[in-house]
Design a protein around this nucleic acid. Sequence first.
DNA 1: GCGATGCCATTGGAAAAACCGATCAGTTAC
DNA 2: GTAACTGATCGGTTTTTCCAATGGCATCGC
Lengths: 302, 302
Amino acid sequence: MASQPTLKQLRYLCAVAQSLHFGKAAKACFVTQSTLSAGINELEQVLGAALLERSNKQVLLTDTGRKTVARSQHILSDIEALKEDAIRAQTPLSNSVRIGIIPTITPFILPRVLPTLHKDFPNLQLLIREDLSENLASLLLQGELDVLLLALPYPVNNTTSYHLFNDPFVLAYPTGHPLGEVKQLRTRDLKGHDILLLENGHCLRDHALEACKLQSSQLSLAFEATSLHTIVPMVANGVGISLLPEMAINEGILSGTKNVSTKEFTESGVWREIGLLWRAKSPRDSEYRLLGEYFKNNSSSE
Amino acid sequence: MASQPTLKQLRYLCAVAQSLHFGKAAKACFVTQSTLSAGINELEQVLGAALLERSNKQVLLTDTGRKTVARSQHILSDIEALKEDAIRAQTPLSNSVRIGIIPTITPFILPRVLPTLHKDFPNLQLLIREDLSENLASLLLQGELDVLLLALPYPVNNTTSYHLFNDPFVLAYPTGHPLGEVKQLRTRDLKGHDILLLENGHCLRDHALEACKLQSSQLSLAFEATSLHTIVPMVANGVGISLLPEMAINEGILSGTKNVSTKEFTESGVWREIGLLWRAKSPRDSEYRLLGEYFKNNSSSE
DNA sequence: GCGATGCCATTGGAAAAACCGATCAGTTAC
DNA sequence: GTAACTGATCGGTTTTTCCAATGGCATCGC
């Protein structure tokens, strides 16, 4: 014996309330009269209350019946809304996407991408969390974040990565620095110079070292900075040289700064790879690919 | 293939959302894991959306899943409330009762009954409609009223009647009128006198005539009044005699009136019967009997 | 009167579903 | 490697749902 009302029963009840006729109500519910009758009976059993007053002549609602019908209609329309919304929400990139981005990317990609993103996917709510790769990866695996925008490779178990583009490292040096004389800049030219990098934990640091095929020990690490924006004035003041991501320069990190020159490396491969990362099992895989494609097409300066 | 979410499915979903573990959720729902798994799958099918993100390690809610869980919890608690309220409402006389009363009863019974009624059944909401018997009967059959307080007999198809008490007719005459001299008043003494009664449609009129075993033709009908309260001053002014229900006198319809005397009949049966009437099939039959018992015990002047 | 009609309730059997136990496939832990 | 867990899947059984037919009751039309 069931002890909870069924949605079907509530539908039956509402149908009867509308026509005050079992036969018509049954037709409206696409069942036979006997089925509907049994359903109503069971509902009354469960509620321990008479909802309808039957006579051979007519069907009437009891007081409890009237109230129950009103509540049922609310519940049924709630169910309908739940379903409709869930289905509607399946349009790609129409819900919230919780994205984690590392601080060495955020300020140089969002200003370029966000405005058009909102225009192209008006129903997408991008929730952004900025943190170090390690913390973001943890949040991703906990399900607190949906997708990460990182410098790759960054190994995380059971994740899918999506390559966006390569972001070359550019040498930044105080104007007049000896390296300014080098015509064909190569990474080995950096050896022995005072070099400013971000503090430990920032993957930019590791990627820069790796891209330049350098060990920490081969460099004179002048100072460990906490953000790229604090490195620039230090370079300008002659504290040392640094390696800046091209996207930061394109986005104007040097604008208004004097005494800092830049030079690109002639070698290939002196870059960090920028990509997206998400849980491999995520059912929104295709959405994230779509998001990736969008970033790829809209984040470069061309 | 079902196209609507089931309450069971929503319950399964909420259980999984709570423990984030199919096995534990299944146990909480008293089903096997396979059953729960199938239920969740079907729900996702119906909604056309992934609600949960399964991996071998953990279960996570998707964005749509989170929203669906929230809505489901609301719906489930609504269902619970519907059930609870319907059950609670079954306490006798705890809902609204729509009662119809004729104008020759209302003012003489309600002031006496209502105050204690509300005290004894605080959850009873008595909705009162005053009209002629004929109109009330029609409303009763239409289901617009639940119970009638009438003078009986009043034949209505498919109704149950409940005897409350007999309300004797009392002769009211201008002080000094010849009938004042009669020691043992009998109904036949009325013949030939100018008698004031209510206009047609009021059952009081018919019942008075019937109780006195008189035909209209045997009386000199002085005037047809619209309410008992207008009859009293006419008697006082010597327009004629009248028959007043005892309950009206007990309730003080003559208080403050001079020149009107009353005299009871010595015969038995000179009364109208007061009773309740309701649809025979009404599921609240026992409640109405209870109400009747209450009226019986609390409407007399003793 | 008296059969025809219309109403909801009930019944018995057939169709559908829900459910379970066992197994599978994949990952983690040791 | 193996054992331990995870959720998914597969047959088979049990349960539920559903229908068509029937029943009981009152009314309507003649």
